[in-house]
């Protein structure tokens, strides 16, 4: 069993600093989720955790295991690729769902729906 205590000093310092940095960014993101006023403001802050927060912790983990096992460990890259591709999808879907719900309730603080698609559908009907 390998233990992180076997890391050389320079690697331990880098890994520790990167881990704390990533955790701090994630905390600020979640803190903003708690503090900001409206849903549309809050939807921005979790991306702190999924962009720089995740990247820093993943780099720390890669350095840690690469130095420990004396071979290149890159499997953490998979988490980075997966998180950076899926987060925009979930946030977009959530924001659009919120927009849809606010519009359906006639909330005046959100912009109204584009009238274009309905007009288009009407124009398309005679051809069909």
């Amino acid at each position: 069993m390998i233990a992180p205590g076997d890391l050389p000093l320079w690697a331990a310092i880098i890994v520790g600093a990167l881990t704390i940095g990533g955790a701090a960014f994630t905390l600020v993101g979640s803190f903003g989720l708690w503090r900001l006023r409206s849903f549309y403001d809050r939807v921005h802050t979790p991306t702190l955790g999924t962009s720089l927060g995740t990247v820093l912790i993943i780099v720390a983990s890669m350095i840690c295991f690469t130095v420990l096992e004396s071979r290149v460990i890159l499997q953490e890259l998979l988490i980075f690729v997966f998180v950076s591709v899926t987060t925009p999808v979930t946030l977009m879907l959530l924001a659009r769902a919120a927009l849809y719900r606010d519009r359906a309730e006639g909330n005046a603080s959100v912009p109204p729906a584009d009238p274009q698609p309905i007009l288009k559908a009407r124009e398309a009907e005679p051809d069909a």
Binding site: I2, A3, P4, V15, L33, G53, T54, S61, V83
Partner: peptide
């Protein structure tokens, strides 16, 4: 509102995932 709760749950998931990675660094377990 419901969308706030879902957003919070998603953030919670990401935080839990990062927590798992830090446990990995701490113990050296793959």
């Amino acid at each position: 509102r419901a969308q706030d709760r879902v957003l919070a749950l998603d953030t919670f998931y990401v935080n839990a995932m990062l927590m798992m990675l830090t446990f990995g660094i701490r113990t050296g377990g793959e």
